[in-house]
Design a protein around this nucleic acid. Structure first.
Lengths: 343, 343
DNA sequence: CAAGAACACGCAATCGATTGCGTGTAATTT
DNA sequence: AAATTACACGCAATCGATTGCGTGTTCTTG
C-alpha cells in the first residue's frame, strides 16, 4: 500500500481503473450518478494508493477555500489564546482550516495582514481589533467581496456588523456593585482605550453601578490606559494610592493590571481586601495564583470562539440572505475570590 | 478607485489595457522581459481597481502554497501560545501564512489533523507532539512528499529529523545543581511522560547533577506524571511531603505543577524556600505572580518558533539537498527567584 | 547598412479537481 | 414490443495565475 503520494491525482486513479477523472471525482464525493460498485472500487484504490485530494485545486474550482482567517493583536495572551483554541476546534470540526495573524496592536500591520488573508481567499474572517484601530475602512475589501466578517472581543462601535460579544456593561455593573456590597464607598476604575467599545461599556457599567448606589462618580479615579499592562497597573495604583482621598476599591478592566495593583498595594502594606478591594476582568489563570486570589469576571473565551465560527459559517451558507440577528451575546459571571471578599 | 474586487482577475486588467494576461502577470511580478512603461501602467490600474492576486490559483500553478502548518497539543498554554506567536511572526515576515491545529494531546486527532494539513498542501510543518504519541509513522506522508517537518518542544526520539530544541539535560542539570548549591540535600523530581525525550532528558540532567554532587538518587522521589497539571502537582507534593523522609527541594519539569506545589506546601505551613526549595521549568508568567515567586528555567518560546520557521524555509529552498545540520539548539538560562533562593 | 542582440509581448498549455451537458445501456412501464 | 425512465459514465470547459516558446520590433555594432 501507500506507494507514492507525491502528485498522485484523480487522473492517475482514473487511468489505472480505466475510468474518466470525472467519474473518479464523483465517486469520491459520493455523487448519485455513480454506480455502487464503481464507487467502491475507486475508494478502495484511493486508499491503497494513499490518494489525498488537493484542496488547492478544489478551492480554485469551487471558489471555496474552506478556510477561516483569524486576526488578533497577540496570540500569546491568555484570553486570546483560549479564543483561538475555541475557534480552531470548532472550525476543524466543520472541515475548515484556521489561518492566524497578529496585528501586534498596530493598525498598519492589521491592514497588511488583512490583505494577505484576502489574497488567500479565506471563507470568513474573525477579528479582534488592534487597540488603536478607530477607522474600519480596511474591512471594506471583505464586505465588497461578500466574505463574512465576525468581530469578537474588541469590536467596532457600529451597527450592521456581525459581532459576538459579552454584555460588558452588565458585567462591569455587577463587578462594581459587588465591590459596593462588600462595603466599598469609593471605587476607582482602571479602563482601556475608551474608543474601544468594550472598555467604554465597562466604564459605563461601572458608572451606572455607582449611580444606582448613590455613590459619587469622581472622574479623578476613572483612569484609562492605552494598554492595560503590568506597568500601567502599577503606575495607576501608585497614582490613586497617593491621592489625598484614595479609593477603597478598584474595578480593573483586565486581570493583568489588577494583579499588579495587588502586588503594588501589598508592597505598600495595604491590606487586601480590607483596605482595598480589587476585582479584575477575564478570569485569567493568574487569578488563582496571585495572593490573595483575584476576583474577576469570567469571560467565556473558548465559547466565544466557537460562537464566532458558527456565526461565520451560517453567514457563508445563507450567503447574502438578509441577516436580522447579527449579534450574539454570551453570558459572563462573577468569580468572587479573596481579593474582594470582605464578608 | 476600488470599483469591484469580487472576481477581479488579471484577465480583466489585461482586457482593459489591451494586453495579454501573461504580460499582466509578468508585469505584476516584475519580470525582466516587460517594458518599464507597461509595468507602470499595469500596476497603476491594478491599484486603482483594487486588484488582489488569487493566491489559490497561484499555488495550484506553482505548486507552492506558501503556507506553514502548525500542529500542537493546545494553543492556550503559555509556552505554546508564545511559540506560535513566534512562528506566525517569522512566517508572515517571509510571506507565509500559518495554519494552526490542535491535537488536544490525542494521537488520533493528531493523525486526522495531519491529513487535513497535507490536503492543504502546506509548504512545511512544525510540530510539537501529543503527549501520548510514540509511533511516528503518520509523518511519513510528509517525508514521502518532501514536505519539510520540523519538530519542536516535544520531539521524537530519533535521528535524521529536523528539530529545534533546548538542551534539556543541561537546563535540568543547572536547575538541580542550583538547588543543591542552596543547601538542598534531598531533591525530588516531578517529571512528565518519560517516553517524551524532553522529560527524559530533564530527568537525566537531574540525576547527573545529584551524582556529581554525591547525593543519593532515590527513585522513590522521582515521579512522572502523564500530564503535569495543577492536580498532579498537588498530588505529587502531598505524596512526597507525607513520606517519612520528605525532600527539601523539588525540581519540577513545568511551572504549572511547580506552582501548585508551592500552593500546597504553603497550605501545609511549610516554609519556602527554607524548608522546601522549588524550581520549575518554562518561566511562564505565573512565576512572577505566585508568592514566593517561582524560580524557573527560561525557555525561549518565541525564538524557538522563529528558528523553526527559518529551519523549515531553508529546507524548502534547498529542497532535497543533503542537509547535514538538522538540529538547532537554543540557549536557556536559570531565572532565580525567591522560591529557591536561600542565600 | 546588414545582421545579430536585446527588448516587449502574445499564444497556449498547465496545475488538479469540478461540473454542465451529452451519450449509451439497462431496467421499467403500458 | 415499443417507449419511457433511470442509471452509469465520459467529454471538455472551467477556476486564475504562471511559463516555455515563439514572433515582431528596436537598438547596437562591425
Amino acid at each position: 500500500m501507500e506507494e507514492r503520494k507525491k502528485g498522485l491525482t484523480i487522473y492517475d486513479l482514473a487511468e489505472e481503473l480505466k475510468l474518466s477523472p470525472s467519474t473518479v471525482s464523483r465517486a469520491l464525493n459520493d455523487h448519485h450518478s455513480i454506480g455502487k460498485k464503481t464507487k467502491k472500487a475507486v475508494k478502495k484504490l484511493a486508499k491503497e494508493r494513499g490518494y489525498r485530494p488537493n484542496a488547492i485545486a478544489s478551492s480554485l474550482r469551487t471558489n471555496r477555500s474552506n478556510t477561516i482567517g483569524i486576526l488578533v493583536s497577540w496570540i500569546n495572551r491568555p484570553f486570546i489564546s483560549s479564543l483561538i483554541s475555541g475557534i480552531e476546534k470548532e472550525a476543524r470540526a466543520k472541515g475548515y482550516q484556521a489561518i492566524i495573524s497578529q496585528s501586534h496592536d498596530s493598525t498598519e500591520l492589521e491592514i497588511d495582514n488583512l490583505q494577505a488573508l484576502y489574497d488567500s481567499r479565506i471563507s470568513a474572517l474573525i477579528v479582534s481589533l488592534a487597540m488603536g484601530t478607530t477607522d474600519y475602512s480596511h474591512f471594506d475589501l471583505f464586505k465588497d467581496s461578500d466574505i463574512p466578517v465576525v468581530f469578537v472581543d474588541r469590536i467596532p462601535d457600529m451597527l450592521n456588523i456581525n459581532k459576538v460579544q459579552i454584555n460588558n456593561f452588565n458585567a462591569a455593573f455587577e463587578a462594581t456593585e459587588h465591590l459596593i456590597e462588600q462595603g466599598c464607598k469609593r471605587v476607582a476604575h482602571f479602563g482601556g482605550a475608551s474608543h474601544q467599545s468594550i472598555y467604554k461599556d465597562r466604564m459605563l457599567g461601572y458608572v451606572a453601578a455607582l449611580k444606582k448606589n448613590n455613590l459619587e462618580v469622581d472622574e479623578a479615579i476613572i483612569l484609562n490606559a492605552n494598554s492595560l499592562s503590568e506597568e500601567e497597573g502599577t503606575r495607576l495604583t501608585e497614582y490613586v494610592l497617593n491621592m489625598d482621598n484614595p479609593p477603597d476599591g478598584i474595578f480593573c478592566a483586565n486581570d493583568k493590571a489588577a494583579v499588579s495593583a495587588i502586588q503594588y498595594a501589598k508592597k505598600r502594606g495595604i491590606k487586601i481586601p480590607e483596605e482595598l478591594a480589587i476585582i479584575g476582568f477575564n478570569n485569567d489563570p493568574i487569578c488563582e495564583i496571585i495572593d490573595p486570589p483575584l476576583s474577576s469576571v469570567h469571560h467565556p473565551a473558548q465559547e466565544m470562539g466557537k460562537a464566532a465560527v458558527q456565526k461565520a459559517l451560517s453567514m457563508i451558507e445563507q450567503n447574502g440572505t438578509s441577516e436580522t440577528n447579527n449579534r450574539v451575546i454570551l453570558d459572563t459571571h462573577l468569580v468572587i475570590r479573596a481579593s474582594s471578599k470582605r464578608k
